[in-house]
Design a protein around this nucleic acid. Structure first.
Lengths: 335, 335
DNA sequence: ATAGATTCCCAAAACGTTTTGGAAAGTCAA
DNA sequence: TTGACTTTCCAAAACGTTTTGGGAATCTAT
């Protein structure tokens, strides 16, 4: 059964030598090495991963737990990011494990099982919350990890994030410069770090230009959430003239609500989203939005994880990516 | 280091007894069993997964390879399906590994590494193609697997799929009954099984009612693809009065192209998609579409995988889920 | 009291690698 | 020829489980 043993027997060599030949050690004669390699190739030899992990004391796997609280989904492009990340990890022969969890208790349980059982060497934290118990747990345990999005204490761990705060500040400023005086924010739940920062950027711009009126509504980061929020905001006695939405999904919902009230985005009211989803270019009218100005967040995330596994200090691994405005039609002036 | 050894020492028992106590064997005294369990709980004992896999000769993991050919992405809801699948698998303590691959050569390489190295016990095949070398490989190797979508020979393996053929047949029939005479199909690449079946359903309905005119255009299953296809189809001298789109993403792109030509979907032309994406309810006008009439495809997929791992015959594991029409506004009559 | 069951436990052998600590043979300098 | 190096190989010990095949008490039935 044992493949290495098999190989050794068929070659008349010891297991040790075969192993070392395949790993390219210098204490095996070049001729032998080649002979072993050829034989290994011939029988499609692949070291048994469990045995290797056991001996080398590492799993060669990275885990990402996926909170699937009902009604809350990540952006549709999330899988693409994971895919890019996984591809880079694969180059280091690290596998990506996807661990969906429902509810926080279950999530911590999963973490424990994972880490006490040495099933993964490192962890990716997504849908990061401002105050995130997962981060606390991982720090305490000393497991390498990178968060996608910041926590309230980002200086204490590795993370990668877009500069949503600047993006929303810039967008709100721009709207103000176009003459908007009532710039509303359609917010995502504020325990999520990205949602908090985007709101913060919006708020900063409003304070800056001295608008006391700061209409906002918080909803789930989905089309339905955006629809509901826009409907509510437009019901006010003096409704906003601009809607700055935490995500494109919300903006798409908002567009639909506006249409129902006979308003045309980009003419009667401004709408801006965030993410630049593929669908955003095809809404009616085409959605003005913003996006992280890096084509390969997933890959960079992987890179940081690899660095972390290689012992790099987490304080050197804190990336804030610039956010680029993608103006289309819906941000137009109202007056 | 060895945790089981640690436990044994601290309890004054043998490793064997501790192991068997935790596994609930009957040849350990109830009192001892409880003592061991308490101690294990106290130190958060989790069996080392590599050691366990090595000894039990199974990885307790299921792999899904994710083709990421440029320009082709899965539907945005794909991650949700995987999450649901992973959750069910977790209940059987099976982990889900996500292996993104670019290009088919790399994909087969990944399969080999995975299976020769005994890294996964079973495989999920997604983005199934009509003639799929992955399926051939897995069948030859005798690895349990389930495909998401059928191949050209679906009777020979386990699969789960929606009845896209019936869905598109029904939709086309309905359009014909509304008086449409030129019902076009916006198709996805025909090597993908789902795309082939949907086109087949459309074609069957047209043959049935005797329409000789069968306008169609094939594009990538994205908004951009749908946009391009719609534009092309509408340029014809006598353009179609209905667009049956392989996916909602394509339909969203098509809507945008129609709007540019001043056409209002649901009044001037009919549009129907497939998937019932969250965004489909919020397009303008709201998109008529269809969806798999099961809320838990991911879970069912997991269930089949588990059955397969339990030795169930693959011929008993072939699920075709009915497709339900979701009429909204865009399917309306043109005359 | 004794043979046979039953209950509770354990030593040791796997599983398939990697790595340690040599050993044997060959080379070279004196 | 001898001693010191090199080169090339290998036996054995891990890594932490699970499982096999008992063994020693204790209990039951005669």
């Amino acid at each position: 059964m044992s493949s290495l043993k098999h190989l050794a027997q068929s070659l008349g060599l010891s297991i040790t030598t075969v192993s070392r030949a395949l790993d390219g050690y210098s204490d095996v004669a070049p001729a032998t090495r080649e002979r072993v390699r050829a034989a290994a190739q011939a029988i499609h030899y692949q070291p048994n991963s469990a045995a290797r992990s056991l001996r080398r004391r590492r799993a060669d796997a990275v885990a990402v737990t996926l909170p699937t609280e009902p009604g809350r989904f990540g952006p549709p492009t999330f899988l693409n990011m994971l895919a890019a990340c996984g591809q880079r990890l694969a180059e280091e022969s690290l596998d990506l494990m996807l661990l969906p969890t429902a509810g926080r208790a279950e999530e911590m349980e999963t973490y424990r099982r994972l880490l006490d059982g040495r099933r993964a060497d490192a962890v990716i934290v997504v849908r990061t919350r401002l105050d995130d118990e997962r981060v606390a747990f991982l720090k305490e345990r000393g497991i390498p990890f990178v968060t996608h999005g910041r926590t309230a204490r980002p200086d204490e761990h590795a993370f990668i994030d877009g500069d949503g705060e600047a993006g929303f500040r810039d967008a709100a400023r721009h709207l103000a410069s176009l003459g908007h005086r009532r710039i509303a924010h359609i917010a995502a739940p504020q325990d999520l770090a990205f949602a908090h920062l985007r709101r913060k950027g919006w708020l900063a711009a409003l304070e800056e230009v001295g608008f006391a009126d700061r209409p906002e509504f918080t909803a789930q980061p989905t089309e339905a959430g955006g629809y509901e929020a826009a409907r509510r905001l437009m019901q006010q006695s003096t409704p906003p003239t601009a809607l700055l939405c935490a995500t494109d999904s919300m903006a798409i919902g908002a567009l639909s609500a506006l249409k129902e009230r006979g308003l045309m985005a980009g003419r009667d009211i401004a709408v801006i989203g965030h993410d630049n989803l593929p669908a955003a270019a095809f809404t009616d009218p085409p959605l003005s939005t913003m996006e992280i100005a890096a084509p390969d967040v997933g890959r960079q995330l992987a890179e940081m994880l690899i660095a972390r596994l290689g012992g790099r200090d987490s304080r050197e691994l804190q990336t804030i990516l610039p956010v680029r405005q993608v103006p289309r039609t819906t941000h137009g002036p109202v007056n």
